[in-house]
Design a protein around this nucleic acid. Structure first.
Lengths: 187, 187, 187, 187
DNA sequence: GATGAATGAGGCTTCATTCAT
DNA sequence: AATGAATGAAGCCTCATTCAT
C-alpha cells in the first residue's frame, strides 16, 4: 500500500489485487471500508510474532529484556508494511477511530504488557531495582518508535545504524534499571 | 490546519485567511506551494524558543539537561500546531521532500546538537560517564517523540500524565549516564 | 413495485421474487423486458373484472351507468397496483411504446367501449338524450382519472371522500345526459 | 426538459444551459436541487396567466365559466412544458414532496378556487342551481386533466379534437348545473 | 490586489449484464 | 435452472485551477 487514503485510487487497489474496480464493491461497501479491512488485516500479522518470540525466551530477565528490544528494533527496521500502517494511522486516524483503537488493543497494549511482565519479573527476582519508569514501561518502546519515526520521515535518506542504536539504547536502559551490584552481568 | 493534504480544500484555507480562493492564486502558484509555505512558516516558531531557552540555562550539566527535557516535553504536550506539523510531515512527506529536509535542518538537527553539546560538556566536566549512546543523542528525544506520537494517535482519548512520564524518563536517563559517584546529586 | 424504471434495481426485483439477479437473466433478456412483462402481467387483472361486472349489470341504462362508475371509482380508490401501473406508463411510456399501446387496447379502449355501449343503449331506449359528448364517452372516465391522479400526486396526504366525490360526479353527468322528463328517476 | 430524473444527465442540462458540468454545481448543491429549482421555476409561469385571464372575464357566470374552461383546455393542449412538469411530478413526486406541495399551493388550489368563486357567484346570481358537485369544483378540471393525461400517455399518436372535446365537456357541465329555466342561454 | 464565476479532469459508486460452475 | 462472482460503462460530485473584471 502506497501511503495516503486520498492519494490511493481504488482502481489501483483493485488492479494490484488482480481484479477490477467493480469487484472491490462486491466485497466492500465503501472506500473507507476497504482501507479499514486492509489495515485490520495487516495489523494481525505482527503481534503473534512478538508473542511467540516473548514466550520462547530463556535466561535472566535482563537477557530476555534485551532480546525483546533487539527483536522489536530489528522488526521495525525491516518491516516496511507495519511502518506504513503506522503512517496511515497517524495520517488518517481521525477518519478511522475504530482502527486506531483496535491497533491499540491488539498491537500496542499487548506489547506494553510484555514489557510490564518482564519488568515485574525482574524486580521480583531482584534483578531490577524498583524505578519510577516501571509505571511507564512504554518508555522501553520509545527508541524503537524513534527508529520507526525516522524511517517514516526520511526513508533511506538518513540511515541509522540500527544495531549500534539498539545497543546504545539497551545500554542506557540497563544502566537505569539493573541493580548496581549486578551490572557486570550486562552484555 | 486540519490534517491531510488532500482533505484540506484551498477554499477553506482561503476562508480561514479571510480571502477567497482566487486570492490564494495571486500569492501561490499551486496548492503544493501553499502547503509548503504554511508548514515552513509554522516550523519557524519552535526552534528559536528552544535555542533561547537552551542558551539561558544555568547550573550543572545534569540540571541543564533535565531542564531541556522538561521544556521539550511541556512544549510537545501543549503545542497542537507543531504536533500537526509532524503529522503532516509523516503523512505527506514524500510529496514534500524539501520540507522534510528543511524540517531536519532547522528543527531536528539543532535540537540534537543542543543535546550533543550538553552531553559533551557533561562528559568533559566529568559529570557524565562516556557511554555508547553519546553517539545517539537523539535517544534523548525519543520519550518526547513518544508523547507526540501518542497524542497524534489517540488525541485526548488516552491521556498520559506528562509530568510523571517526564520524571520517569529523566530518572531512567540520568541513571544511565551520570557518573555513579555523583548520583546523589540527581533531583 | 416501487416507482420508476431507473430507481428500481433488478437485484431488488429478484429478491422480491425470491431468486437472485442471475436467475432473472435466465428468463428475461433485459431489464426493459422484465418491466415489460411485469406491467403486462399486472395489467391483465383489471379488465376482466370490469368486463364481468359490466355484463352482469341489470336495470335501466342510467342505473347500469351509475353502477359502472361507482365500480370504477371504488376500484381506482382501492387498487394501489393499477395506480402504480398508470404512474409507470406516464413516467416511462416513451421507453415502452408497446406497453402503452397494449394498455390502450386491453384496458382503456374496452372500458371506453363499455361506456359507449351503455350510452348508445340509453339513447336508443330514449333514456338519454343525444348529446355532443356521446362522441367522447371517455369524458365519463375523467372523474375517475382525476381520483387516480390525485392519489398519484398526493398519496394519502390530501384524502378525498371518494363516495361523495363519486355521487357528485354522477349527479353532474346524469343531469347532463338523462332526458329531462325522466330525471326524477335518478338516485 | 426531457422526462425522467434518472434519465437526465446533468451534463446535458448544463449543455442546454450553455455551460459545463462544473458550473451547475456552482449554483446548485445537488442534482435533486437542480430539478427542484427547475420545476419550481417552470411552475411559476402558468398560474399568473390563469389569474389574469380570470380577472379580465366579462359576461354571465356561464359565459365566464365556459371561457375559463376553453382557456385551460387550450393551454393544456398547447403547452408542452407544463405537461412535462405534470409528468415529472407524477413520476418523481415522492422524491420531491416539497415540490408537489408547492405545485398544489401555487397551481392547483388557486385554479380550483377560481372555479369555486365562479360557481358561488353563479349560484348567488341564480344562474346555477345548487348541486352536489359544488363541493368538488375540481370536477371541472377533470376533462382538462384527461386531455393532459392522454397527451402524456400517447403523445401525438392518438390525437383528440381538443375543440370538440372541450365543447362536449362544457355542454355536459352546463346541462348539469345551469338552471333549467335558463338553459336556452347556453352557447 | 481581489473576486466570483467557470471549467474539466479525476475518482467514487452504482448497477445492468455476463459467465463459469 | 440457479447462483454468485466479476465486469465496466456511466454518471454524480469535488475541487484545483484559470480568468475576465
Amino acid at each position: 500500500m502506497k501511503s495516503g487514503y486520498a492519494a490511493t485510487r481504488l482502481e489501483d487497489v483493485a488492479a494490484r489485487a488482480g481484479v477490477t474496480k467493480g469487484t472491490i464493491y462486491f466485497y466492500f461497501d465503501t472506500k473507507e471500508r476497504v482501507f479499514d479491512e486492509m489495515i485490520r488485516y495487516k495489523s494481525q500479522s505482527f503481534f503473534p510474532k512478538v508473542q511467540d518470540y516473548a514466550s520462547g525466551l530463556q535466561g535472566s530477565c535482563a537477557e530476555r529484556l534485551r532480546s525483546m528490544i533487539v527483536f522489536v528494533h530489528k522488526y521495525i527496521a525491516e518491516d516496511r508494511s507495519s511502518r506504513e500502517t503506522l503512517r496511515f494511522l497517524i495520517a488518517e486516524g481521525s477518519r478511522f477511530p475504530g482502527l486506531v483503537d483496535r491497533h491499540y488493543d491488539e498491537f500496542i497494549r499487548p506489547m506494553i504488557e510484555r514489557f510490564e511482565e518482564l519488568i515485574a519479573d525482574g524486580i521480583a527476582a531482584g534483578e531490577f531495582r524498583p524505578f519510577p519508569a516501571m509505571a511507564f514501561t512504554e518508555l522501553m518502546l520509545s527508541p524503537g518508535l524513534f527508529l520507526s519515526f525516522w524511517s517514516l520521515l526520511f526513508g533511506s535518506r538518513r540511515p541509522i545504524d540500527v544495531e549500534a542504536f539498539t545497543e546504545a539504547s539497551i545500554d542506557l536502559l540497563m544502566q537505569g534499571i539493573v541493580q548496581p551490584a549486578l551490572q557486570h552481568d550486562r552484555g
